[in-house]
Write a protein that binds this DNA or RNA. Structure first.
Lengths: 248, 248
DNA sequence: CGGCTGATTGATCCCGGTCAAATGAGGTGG
DNA sequence: CCACCTCATTTGACCGGGATCAATCAGCCG
C-alpha cells in the first residue's frame, strides 16, 4: 500500500485538503485514510453519481477527477451549482435529509471513496477533529455557493468567467493540483456556460476576450493564468471566502 | 414565562421550525427554549449583526423579524445572498471558520437569541436530536442557496421574482407566519432587486407585470398570492428543495 | 412646509441571448 | 488510410431583455 509513504497514496488530495481545514494528527489521518481505503470506487466521465430526489446514505470523497452539482428546470435549462474537485466531499451529512436536491455528475473519470452512513457516523463520533473538518467542508461549500450567487447576480460576463477561473485555481492549489501558473480545466465550454449562467456562444466570446487581454491561456483542457493578480482584479475577486480556515 | 403555555412563547417560531426539521421531545424543546431565554436580544432595522470578515463566536436564532445575508463588491454592487426569516438560524456552526464571509443585516426590528459557542457546543453534545436539527438547518440553508444560484443563472426576471415569492411563502408557512394566502414582505424593492440580481427599475416593472397577471398583490409590505399553484408554474418552481425534511 | 426615502415612469442603449452555419478534432469502421 | 460521424469550438447576424439615466410622484417625519 503506497499510503505508507509520505505522499498519502490515493488519498493524498483528501488528506491535504483536510489538513488545510483542520491540522490532522497521525491518528486522525490514519483513521480517515483507513475509511477511504475500505470504499474505493471509480466512475467514468458523464456518469451520474446521484440524481435529484435520490435518497442519500453515504458520504463520498473525491480522490481524483472532477464532478459537478447541477439542477435542471423542466424545460431543460441547466445550471451547474458547483464543481467538486479532488479532495472535496460530496454531501457530507446530507444523509440527514430525506433526499438530495440536486444531481452530481462526473466530468472526467473519477476515483472516489464511499463511506456508508453508519461507518461515517462512527468515524465522526470517534474522532472529533475529523468531525470538525467535515463540518468545515460543508461550511466552506456553503461559502462558495454564496460567492456564486454574487457572481451570477452582480458580475458581468467578463468578470464572472474571470472569477470562476480564479476560484478554481485557488481551490486546486491547496491540494497540490496547480503546476506553476497552470491547472487542469477538464470541462467543456458548455459546462462553463452552465456554471456561469451564460449561453455557450457568449461564454466562448468571453473566453476569447480574456485571451485577448492576455489574462489566460486555455488550450487542451489546461488553464494557464499568467498574472493571477491581474485576473483577480478583473474579476473583483475578494479572497476572504476561500481562506476562512487559514487564520484559525 | 409564557413559554409554559402551548404556544412556545417568544421561542414559538424557532420551536415550530425545529420540530419540522426533527421531531423534538419535551426535553429537547425545553433544552432549546432554555438556551434561547438565556440570551434574548433585540436589534432595530438596518443594523448589522455581523459584517464580512468578523470572527464568529456564537449562534443566533431569530425569534421575530427579517434579516438578510449580503455581500458587496468593491464598487458598491450589492447582492443579497439569502433572507433569514423567523425561526431560522444565523450561522449555526460558523464559529468553526476563522471569520464570516458575508454580512448579516436586519431588515426590520428583530428579536433574537444569542447562544455562545461554548454553550451551543454543550447543548449539542447533550442533545443529539438538537444537534441533528441544527445540522439540518445548515443543510437546508445550503439547498436554498443552490436554488438561488439556479434562479439567478437560468431564470428570466419574471420567473425569478415569482420564484422568490413562492420560496418566501413556503418558508414562512411552517413557522405559522402565513395568514390565508398572505404573508409579510417587510423589505424594500431595492432589497428585492439585490436579491434577484435585477436593477430596482426592472424589479419594479417585473412586480407590476406580476400584478397585471393577477398573480400577486403587494401592498403595505404585505404579499398576497391568489393562486399559489399558478405562481409556482410561472416560476418553474420545483418544491423538492424545501421539503427535504418532510419525508424522513 | 421642506427633506428624505421608496415607488414609479419614460427614454435610450447595450450586453448577452438566439439562430444558424462553419470549422476542428477525435473516434470508428470499412 | 480514408470516409464519416459526433461532439466541441468558433464565427456571423440579428434581436430583445434588462440596465442606465433622469425625472416625477407619494408617504412620512420633524
Amino acid at each position: 500500500m503506497r499510503s505508507h509513504g509520505t505522499d498519502g497514496g490515493v488519498a493524498q488530495a483528501v488528506l491535504r485538503r483536510f489538513n488545510a481545514l483542520r491540522p490532522l494528527s497521525e491518528e486522525d489521518a490514519a483513521a480517515l485514510e483507513h475509511a477511504i481505503l475500505e470504499g474505493l470506487l471509480r466512475a467514468g466521465p458523464g456518469e451520474d453519481l446521484i440524481a435529484e430526489g435520490d435518497p442519500v446514505d453515504s458520504v463520498r470523497l473525491v480522490l481524483s477527477g472532477w464532478l459537478f452539482r447541477h439542477k435542471t428546470l423542466e424545460d431543460g435549462r441547466r445550471q451547474i451549482v458547483n464543481f467538486i474537485l479532488p479532495g472535496e466531499t460530496c454531501d457530507s451529512h446530507a444523509y440527514l435529509l430525506s433526499s438530495i436536491d440536486h444531481s452530481i455528475t462526473t466530468a472526467t473519470p473519477v476515483a472516489y471513496a464511499e463511506i456508508k452512513r453508519a461507518r461515517f457516523e462512527q468515524l465522526m463520533a470517534a474522532n472529533s477533529t475529523l468531525a470538525e473538518a467535515f463540518m468545515c467542508e460543508t461550511l466552506l461549500n456553503s461559502a462558495i455557493q454564496r460567492e456564486w450567487i454574487v457572481n451570477l447576480g452582480r458580475r458581468a460576463a467578463f468578470e464572472r468567467v474571470a472569477h470562476l477561473f480564479c476560484e478554481i485555481f485557488e481551490r486546486l492549489r491547496p491540494v497540490g493540483l496547480v503546476d506553476g501558473n497552470s491547472c487542469a480545466l477538464p470541462v467543456t465550454q458548455t459546462d462553463l456556460a452552465d456554471a456561469t449562467g451564460l449561453s455557450v456562444v457568449h461564454l466562448n466570446r468571453t473566453i476569447q476576450e480574456l485571451r485577448a487581454c492576455g489574462l489566460i491561456v486555455l488550450k487542451d483542457r489546461t488553464l494557464t493564468i499568467g498574472d493571477l493578480e491581474a485576473l483577480k482584479n478583473a474579476a473583483m475577486y475578494s479572497p476572504g471566502y476561500l481562506r476562512l480556515y487559514q487564520a484559525k
